[in-house]
């Protein structure tokens, strides 16, 4: 399978301003030298705790933050220099679904304008065609066309998230970056949105970069998983490798911390967590460099990489 997106040695540094003239006196390394690839129509999960750089990675791919160094290859073409440029063809092919959709929508615009905005930027449609297209998009995400003249505040959280999805779908992108698309939603609404995402993927063959802190959701959505910690990947693998046999201590900790729905395992899980917490304290030097950063990824098998010395 061809790769739709390849990210090579991506670095995103935020400058720290200070001193007399507000000069840059240092950098916060939000994303520090990561590489990965996403295949066509595939879902890749990216998990980690808050502040680990997972959202910054997603934003960097869309050009929403400035890349310090590295290369982004889309569909076999190096597009690093086009990234962030308005109306480049790349913009058309990569879209994003945000966690807090409400703040990603203009409260003064109607649903019609919100969803049609990408269409207006890239396709010259007449008013009638545009409206038909928006109605079509709404029906894909299960909203009736009577909603077309409403404003964002008139919808519930789940409906708004679906409008966000409809907007992301408008230009038939090849890749959608989903940044915590369901973490603000109730359980039943979350299920609805996840189902839609899966259906749409099947229908249009879209690839997803699925960013989340919830391992349950990621395990449901993705076969491939990347675990991020301290701005770098600590483990990269597939369902069969990483879920069944996590190697890095951070991955183990993350998996042990995910609540188990089986009430009988309660005591056992608490003990496992205690054991892993101890291991984490005792073996920091094995998994992290002296200055606390993460090692480079090492190949364990064809589909399993771990950051170890």
């Amino acid at each position: 399978m061809a790769n739709i997106l390849e990210v090579k040695n991506l670095k995103v540094y935020y400058p720290i301003k200070g001193g007399l003239m507000g000069r840059t006196i240092g950098h916060v390394k939000a994303v520090d030298d990561i590489s990965f690839a996403i295949g066509e129509g595939e879902t890749v999960g990216l998990v980690g705790e808050s502040g680990c750089g997972k959202s910054t990675t997603g934003k960097a791919i869309l050009g929403l933050v400035k890349i310090h160094s590295g290369q982004i290859v889309f569909n076999g073409e190096d597009i690093t220099k086009y990234i962030g440029k308005n109306r480049s063809p790349y913009r058309k092919n990569v879209q994003m679904i945000f966690q807090d959709v409400y703040s990603s929508m203009n409260p003064k615009e109607r649903v019609l304008d919100i969803i049609a905005e990408p269409l207006r930027n890239f396709e010259k449609l007449t008013k009638v065609e545009e409206r038909k297209k928006v109605e079509e998009l709404l029906s894909i995400v299960g909203l009736s066309s009577s909603n077309i003249l409403k404003y964002p505040h008139q919808f519930s959280g789940g409906q708004r998230q679906r409008i966000g999805i409809a907007r992301a779908l408008a230009l038939k992108p090849k890749l959608i970056v989903c940044d915590e698309p369901v973490s603000a939603l109730d359980l039943s609404v979350q299920a609805q949105v996840l189902n839609y995402l899966k259906d749409i993927q099947e229908e249009f063959g879209i690839a997803y970069l699925f960013i989340s802190h919830d391992l349950g959701v990621v395990e449901y959505m993705c076969k491939n998983l990347m675990v991020m910690h301290k701005s770098r990947f600590v483990e990269k693998g597939t369902e069969d490798t990483i879920y069944k046999n996590p190697v890095h201590i951070y991955t183990k900790r993350l998996m042990a911390a995910t609540p188990d729905l089986d009430t009988k395992n309660r005591q056992k899980n608490a003990e496992i967590r205690k054991k892993i917490a101890e291991e984490y304290e005792n073996s920091k030097s094995r998994y992290y460099k002296e200055d606390g950063t993460v090692y480079d990824l090492k190949k364990l098998s064809e589909e399993h990489y771990v950051a170890m010395p």
Binding site: S188, Q190, A191, N195, G216, V217, E219, Y243, L261
Partner: peptide
């Protein structure tokens, strides 16, 4: 309970 995404059942649809 049937709308919780769980491990290793990724082929099934979630209940809504």
């Amino acid at each position: 309970l049937s709308s919780i995404p769980r491990k290793s059942k990724s082929t099934n649809r979630l209940n809504t």
